[in-house]
Design a protein around this nucleic acid. Sequence first.
DNA 1: TTACTTTGATAGGCTTTACTTATCATGGAG
DNA 2: CTCCATGATAAGTAAAGCCTATCAAAGTAA
Lengths: 297, 297
Amino acid sequence: MELRQLRYAMAVAQKLNFTQAAEALAIAQPALSQQIAGLERELGVRLFERTNRKVEITDAGRAFVRHAERIIDELAATAEEMTAYAGGLRGRVVVGTYQSFAEYTLPKLLGRFHASFPGIEIALREGMADDLLAGLRAGSVDVFIGDITESQYAGDRAFRAEGLYEDELVVIVGAGHPLARASTLRIEEVRDEPFVIFRPGSSITGRLMTAARNAGFRPRVVFESVDSLTVRSLVAEGLGIALFPRTLGNMPGPNVALLSIDPQRMMRHMSLVTRVGEPSPSTRTFVDFLRDAMEYA
Amino acid sequence: MELRQLRYAMAVAQKLNFTQAAEALAIAQPALSQQIAGLERELGVRLFERTNRKVEITDAGRAFVRHAERIIDELAATAEEMTAYAGGLRGRVVVGTYQSFAEYTLPKLLGRFHASFPGIEIALREGMADDLLAGLRAGSVDVFIGDITESQYAGDRAFRAEGLYEDELVVIVGAGHPLARASTLRIEEVRDEPFVIFRPGSSITGRLMTAARNAGFRPRVVFESVDSLTVRSLVAEGLGIALFPRTLGNMPGPNVALLSIDPQRMMRHMSLVTRVGEPSPSTRTFVDFLRDAMEYA
DNA sequence: TTACTTTGATAGGCTTTACTTATCATGGAG
DNA sequence: CTCCATGATAAGTAAAGCCTATCAAAGTAA
């Protein structure tokens, strides 16, 4: 049984005339006769009762065509769904990003994305740059949104990064802290401060460590967490200071003071990172959408 | 898209290994790679993500295989149903017979037949021999059960008849009729009787007319009907006499006397008549069943 | 590191098959 | 009785699917 034979049988059942059916199928009549004959031979059943004057469909033929129609319909549905996948209108994209970004910035974007592309499922994986980039390389993550410049994968030829926006990293201190009144500070001023850090592996902690090393000290760590709200709360309680994204510091939450770093503000380059090579259509759709959304923001 | 490709994709999805899948499909690995590649090219979507070390199925691939399984299942169901038709386990048989046979004799048989072959639908067409035999020739009737010997089609090479059983035709008279006490009569004795007949075209009326002509008279007809119960009732009321099947006369009903015809009992040869040539499998099943049932009766 | 192994892709040749045109057989219509 | 419509059959051709041989890449073992 071949799909061809299903289609041919359907045509004959509709026209009840081999010549006309063949014409509709854009083949010669003998080809049609051969195929139907072969089909009947294979099934062991006559599907059409044909005299020289007229063609009648048998009960078996009716049943066969009923099945054939279902199959051809299902096939069309398959093709349509595949086209949706091919066009990037359907699929699944695993987005890896920082918990903070996932919590504060992404939701609005994803809402708009889902409205535009309801067929694409977004899976969020929250974590630290290194883990997510490893996942990206392995294929378990499709898009990484974050800062790659300080990561061990910086400059890796396997990735393609495009800048999304710049986020300043500031030092946050509790409201009662001596530095709370200032708006800037030099990095050396915090060499003896206790630090609350994001768990090692995070890009912010990486930046902090690099900057401290360049300034000739090792930060004294008193607390660490993966959760940005936890870090901020600890700082607000005066238990330490932290390097923190300004955008996140401006969000409503426990009261902290934000201080830019002098003489050069420390920036974080938020990028959209993908694997080089052919991305899945849905990944392309997502990336295109995000690029667009950021342009207008 | 070809069924082959659906099956191949299913195999690859199951094994997630082209070499093993090819082995399971009993083809060489390159053939499989070619088919999957062709399928993906046609659909414009990657169904499997393959590195030299492992094969992974994509979301599109998963969706495709889901469809493919449905299609292949439907195809198997089709084949199975066609096999049922081919084996005569499924189908529709149009049985043409006399109203009397349809009412009194067939129901028990059909009940047993349906129990044995629930997939075969029986359509009953009740009528007179000539009409039903015309239908049989035209194809609108598959089996005729009745007496062909007196019909205009007797000896027709287009039909094949096999005897089922012999049914005696007797004269029935009302209980108060002068002849009611006898058990036999010669045909000449009823030359002046008023007759209740089955509507012209019925085989019994044909027999009556032939017998009367041979005896040198024309029956005087006072009533005619297609319905055997009506005929019997009219006779019971004394409105006339009739030629009637003995089996039917023995059934419970209005009281009539049954008289065999002398010197030679008049028999009706109930036959099972089919068109010559290849009958449909379900027709064969029905005919075989009926032959069997009659043998043991 | 180097050689080996596994696995999917590619190339070239062969075989199957589905298509084409030409022709026949049959039965109803004018 | 001839003609026409229609499906079946025959023979040749072109496409495509499969096979064997071979390559390329990447992980594994020595």
